[in-house]
């Protein structure tokens, strides 16, 4: 189970890094086509925006799995192990409710209702762009539930840093 989690996280990380590299290349291509070739590429602006959205939400899922989201863990880190686990459970429920409603349900509906709305330049249905919301929600669900299970069974340590310094 732990190995599945690690594998999934690695896949996400590779995807994120690839998208980031692609973004750099596309942006440089945009400058090149306009300044050096004199014929600005028309599709780069929209593609770059959509890539960034996809990268951010893929990465958001990764950060839920690896507890990399910016958080204030000063108080949780002061708690004894048992109380800490209970708090972790409560926080996980909040995350699941958030992901379930805002990203999964809301994202699913937004994707469907935006299927007929076209992006201005490439004429891609906006619903495709929105679809990363429910996709990332599903991954968040998998990773968060795995985390809860692994922490409750003691196979993973609580994420609240004892040093009090957020990991970045």
């Amino acid at each position: 189970m732990l190995s599945f989690k690690r594998w999934l996280e690695r896949v996400l990380l590779v995807l994120m890094a690839t998208m980031l590299i692609a973004m750099v290349c596309l942006m440089l291509w945009q400058v090149t086509t306009r300044y050096l070739l004199g014929v600005p590429a028309l599709y780069t602006e929209e593609t770059l925006r959509f890539l960034m959205i996809w990268m951010a939400l893929t990465g958001a899922a990764y950060c839920f799995g690896t507890n990399r989201h910016l958080a204030l863990d000063l108080i949780p880190s002061l708690l004894p192990e048992k109380a800490g686990r209970v708090l972790y459970l409560i926080n996980s429920v909040v995350v699941l409710v958030f992901a379930g409603f805002v990203l999964l349900l809301g994202g699913w509906k937004a994707s469907l209702s935006a299927l007929t709305q076209m992006s201005p330049i490439m004429q891609i249905p906006m619903g495709y762009a929105y679809s990363i919301l429910p996709i990332s929600a599903v991954i968040i669900f998998i990773l968060q539930i795995l985390n809860v299970f692994l922490i409750m069974t003691g196979r993973l340590r609580l994420p609240y840093a004892k040093s009090g310094a957020g990991e970045l």
Binding site: L13, M16, A17, L20, A56, G59, A60, C63, T66, L70
Partner: peptide
């Protein structure tokens, strides 16, 4: 270099998610 790209992607994602 691979690590740099991964680390930046993670940091970026957590900041962008906050912005969102």
């Amino acid at each position: 270099y691979l690590r740099i790209f991964c680390r930046s992607a993670i940091l970026t994602a957590s900041i962008l998610f906050l912005i969102a």
